[in-house]
Design a protein around this nucleic acid. Sequence first.
DNA 1: CATATCTCAGGACAACTGATATCC
DNA 2: CGGATATCAGTTGTCCTGAGATAT
Lengths: 170, 170
Amino acid sequence: VTSSSGPRPPDWATDLDLPDAGLVARIIRLNLFVTRALDGIAGSAGIQTADHIVLGVLRRCPGRRSTPTRLCEVLGRSTGGMTLTLDRLEAAGWLTRSPDPVDRRRVVVSLTERGLEITTRVNDALHAWEDGLGLDEERRSAMTEMADHLLELFEERSAAHPSDALGRAS
Amino acid sequence: VTSSSGPRPPDWATDLDLPDAGLVARIIRLNLFVTRALDGIAGSAGIQTADHIVLGVLRRCPGRRSTPTRLCEVLGRSTGGMTLTLDRLEAAGWLTRSPDPVDRRRVVVSLTERGLEITTRVNDALHAWEDGLGLDEERRSAMTEMADHLLELFEERSAAHPSDALGRAS
DNA sequence: CATATCTCAGGACAACTGATATCC
DNA sequence: CGGATATCAGTTGTCCTGAGATAT
């Protein structure tokens, strides 16, 4: 994490260009920066990034509740792994598990007051960080619209090929 | 990973909306889809996603070579972890390590012919996948321009605050 | 000598796989 | 009974931390 002093690296190690790189490379790179910021912010708030994302998904579900399997589908994780994550979040008091009265195989996962509070706090900090970037409003809304359009395409696509949604198809 | 048959989940577990969600949430979600596709494609080619990304960065470096530390900065990883990754990639014959004649503390990491070949192959497949999404050309170029603009902002930002570039400050 | 770069060994942790219990 | 849901146990694997080696 040093880059201030000492002998500068030779020029050929300095820059990298994304000339022919496609959208995919750019999205990955964007995600890298975003993830760094999120790690810092979530860390300060005392929650892991991956856990915050689960709470964030939950926050945007109708009624602020969902089921483990549904969360797995959205986030591309296994049910076994999700159980562990939910254990952590439940132990922290950020969500509760309760049996679904309608279908008792199911477990309903609900965001608690404190869970809502922390994910909202992290989200607000993230918004502040985003605002501080100096992105003009025009581009911001254009970018949002593009992203939503792309997301729609992705969702259509994974609805069409559910089997390789997770890249596990033969 | 089931969503085709069986009793549908109740409505309240079905949809999630990103109403007030900012760019960050969208980028994370985009990355999720992209990562799924990449996992599938890279997996078929016999390389891990994380490893492919290292090769991809290398491919876009002038001269197709860089140093471990530089890669760590770009990808936000520790040098120790990078050593292990480079061990893997070197063992696979995708890159070579050689001492820097100018500064012999340094190691120069160079993409091999085979390394260039595999990362190019994966990249082409990714392009094909991207083309298959049905994104019209106008939006595609707009999206690209937006992404590049955002990336510039991010880079300025991390140049301004190098200490918390990795979220490890204080 | 203090700093920079890389490597190595040890440890931590999250996530997956497969099997089990419960329920439709 | 077959399919679905969630959990548990065991394992894997990657990454990080901190110490050490070599060079400046």
